[in-house]
Each structure stands twice: as structure tokens, then as C-alpha cells.
């Protein structure tokens, strides 16, 4: 393959720094015990050893984003009359994410279908997505709770990435997967990669077999409609859930949001913020009616969305990338892979 490159370990830092002069670069940084995607800076402690606590979804889908601002203007001749002026915010900088994991990159492809591949594309998501290059890193080992291979991914999966980097003995092997990815090969210190292709492939295959498969040897089967609609099943499965939003906010594929107006005096903003289907408010109506008032109904919707509704709508694609974060960071260790496993028909 022609579109490959290699960066020796000692030039890795300079490579990232070089890219950061051309675009806004997000890298996983260690803060205390937590790994987070942050804008690159020389003072940051980079951490590629394990997946970040939260995926890089906030780079393209910020936790809070201004859809537009509004200003009220009083008519000087008629103070009773107020005009409102709206201003959109649709300027997005060129951005590179380095060190996302294959599961994180797959998360963006789950977003793409409802956000860009429709007759009403979302200009905020689409704008950032087009301006962002996703440089993914092959996992060196699985993490607690992760199960990407069981949901169609792999620790070296290329879906959703512009380039894939695999750590080999002396450095980093890069494969460009898109035009945007090829630009990365122009970064400082990139050498010819041909000689390292073999090592990288071996490494990728080795990790693949280490990932657990929670769904048994036959893989993920069909969700049993009888069990799915059995209230007792859900009640038992999620009685321990505390209905917080850690699972949804840390999920690379969870894309629900809220829209609220935040006003100060004569101006304000309409913002779009992350929201989660696990919160009781999510579907609560002004009348007091709530179509999903109990946590088991909400959890059922969450699992249903990922493993049943989304696949129904988008050609069988599962809206779960198996990153394991919802399992790893769940306050009560609720395990979605166990629940889905138990949902499979006999």
C-alpha cells in the first residue's frame, strides 16, 4: 500500500506539535487519573496507553454548542415594538483528533447517518465533521468491559477514521485511509512506512483475539421480541441502575440532545447540549405526562435504540461500538453486554 508512513518514537512528539501549527489538534491528555481529549499544548501530559475516559465525540459534538444568538432591538419610535435579530454560528476551525480508538471513530459513523445522511442535515455536526481529521490508534490491549469485536468492530478497525496508527517496536506505522488522512502523512518526521506494514498487521491481529465476546461463540443473535417487551425482564435487569447519565455521556454513539434558551437581559443564545435518555426529565412533558416515567422504560429505550431501533432504520447497523465505557464507569456496574446477551432469543 502506497499510503503508509512511519514515525520513529523519538519524533512522535515533534510530529504532533508540527500538526498543531496547521490545525487545532486534540490529543488524549492525562489529568490526575483521568485521560481526556484536550487541545494539544506542550505542557500537557499525553497518554496513548489506554482509551480516554470519555471519547472524542465532544470535538465534533460539543457538550454545549450555540445554535444561534438572539438580540432584542427596541424600535426607537415605538418602544412597545421589539424586533428580534438572529445570528447563526457556523464557523468551524480545521481540527485533527489524534489517538481516538477504533470504537471512538466508529461512534462518529453512527452519528453520521441521522446527522448528515438525511434530507435535513445538521449543519453544526456536518460542518465540524467535514473539517475534522480522525487519526485513530490501534489498541495495544483490550480494556476492562470492552467488547468491540462482538459488535462488528475490532481493535484495528478502520471505519470512521481518516488514518490508522499502529504502534510497532520502534515507532508508529500510519495508514492513510482518506484524502484527509493522506495529509497527515505530510506531517513532520514521517518516513516511508512500507517496511513496517508486516509488524503492524501482526500486532493488529494479536490484539483482535484478546477482546472478549460476551455473546457466546455464535455471536450476537436477534433480540427476542418476547423478552424485549417483558417488563419483568427489564425490572430485574436494571433495578440497580441509578438513572444517571454517565453511560450516555461517555458513549461514543449516544447522540441525544437538548435545546434550551439561555438569556441575559436583551440578548441570549439558543444552545444545544448533551442530554440523555436515562434522565427522567428527558421525555417529561409540560402537562406532567411522561411516556417513559420509570428507569426500566428508559433503559429499555436505550438498549432498544442501540440494538434494535437503529439497526431497523439503518440496514442492520448496531449503534454500539463496544468501547465498554458505560460498563467501566457505571456507578453500579450495570453491564449492557450482559443485558443484550440475555435478550437474545433461544
Amino acid at each position: 500500500m502506497a499510503d503508509t508512513g512511519f514515525i520513529p518514537k523519538e519524533k512522535w512528539g515533534a510530529f504532533i506539535e508540527g500538526l498543531s501549527t496547521k490545525a487545532q489538534v486534540y490529543v488524549p491528555c492525562l489529568e490526575g487519573d483521568t485521560v481526556l481529549f484536550r487541545p494539544f499544548g506542550k505542557e500537557k501530559t499525553l497518554c496513548f496507553e489506554r482509551p480516554a475516559n470519555s471519547p472524542p465525540k465532544s470535538v465534533i459534538f460539543p457538550q454545549s454548542d450555540t445554535l444561534f444568538s438572539f438580540t432584542f432591538i427596541k424600535d426607537p419610535d415605538n418602544p412597545q415594538k421589539t424586533e428580534v435579530e438572529l445570528k447563526e454560528h457556523l464557523d468551524f476551525p480545521k481540527t485533527i483528533v489524534i489517538g481516538s480508538r477504533p470504537c471512538d471513530a466508529k461512534g462518529f459513523t453512527v452519528y453520521d447517518r441521522p446527522y448528515t445522511e438525511t434530507d435535513t442535515p445538521d449543519p453544526y455536526y456536518k460542518g465540524r465533521r467535514e473539517k475534522t481529521t480522525i487519526v485513530t490508534m490501534t489498541c495495544n490491549s483490550p480494556s476492562a468491559g470492552c467488547f468491540c469485536t462482538a459488535v462488528g468492530g475490532s481493535p484495528a478497525d478502520k471505519e470512521g477514521s481518516d488514518a490508522l496508527i499502529t504502534e510497532v517496536e520502534k515507532g508508529y506505522f500510519i495508514e492513510a485511509l482518506t484524502e484527509k488522512g493522506k495529509e497527515i502523512l505530510q506531517g513532520p518526521g514521517v518516513e516511508d512506512g512500507k517496511a513496517y506494514q508486516g509488524d503492524a498487521t501482526k500486532k493488529q491481529e494479536a490484539v483482535h483475539s484478546m477482546v472478549k465476546n460476551p455473546f457466546g461463540p455464535k455471536g450476537l443473535g436477534k433480540v427476542s421480541p418476547e423478552l424485549f417487551d417483558n417488563d419483568e425482564f427489564w425490572d430485574n435487569a436494571v433495578s440497580k441502575c441509578v438513572s444517571c447519565g454517565a453511560c450516555t455521556y461517555l458513549c461514543p454513539t449516544c447522540y441525544c440532545f437538548n435545546i434550551t434558551d439561555e438569556q441575559t437581559s436583551d440578548k441570549g443564545e439558543r444552545i444545544r447540549t448533551w442530554d440523555g435518555c436515562m434522565y427522567v426529565h428527558f421525555t417529561l412533558e409540560a402537562s406532567g405526562h411522561n411516556p417513559r416515567p420509570t428507569k426500566f422504560q428508559r433503559f429499555k429505550n436505550r438498549v432498544g435504540h442501540k440494538f434494535s431501533f437503529y439497526p431497523e432504520k439503518y440496514n442492520g447497523v448496531i449503534a454500539c461500538c463496544g468501547c465498554g465505557r458505560c460498563i467501566r464507569y457505571c456507578p453500579m456496574s450495570v453491564d449492557i453486554s450482559e443485558i443484550v446477551s440475555n435478550l437474545q432469543g433461544a
Partner: peptide, 27 residues
Amino acid sequence: DRCIRCYACRNACPMCVCQDSCIAESR
């Protein structure tokens, strides 16, 4: 700065008895 407002701290707190009517989400 790291807080993602997931409210795990609130929902796992045994004494956070307001839960569903928390000022964090109230309009």
C-alpha cells in the same frame, strides 16, 4: 473543568433526595 454534568455524583448520593426535581435541570 473535567465535570461532564452526568450527575452520577447526585444520583448515586444516598442523601440527594431531590433527585428528579434538582435545580441542575430546573427552568
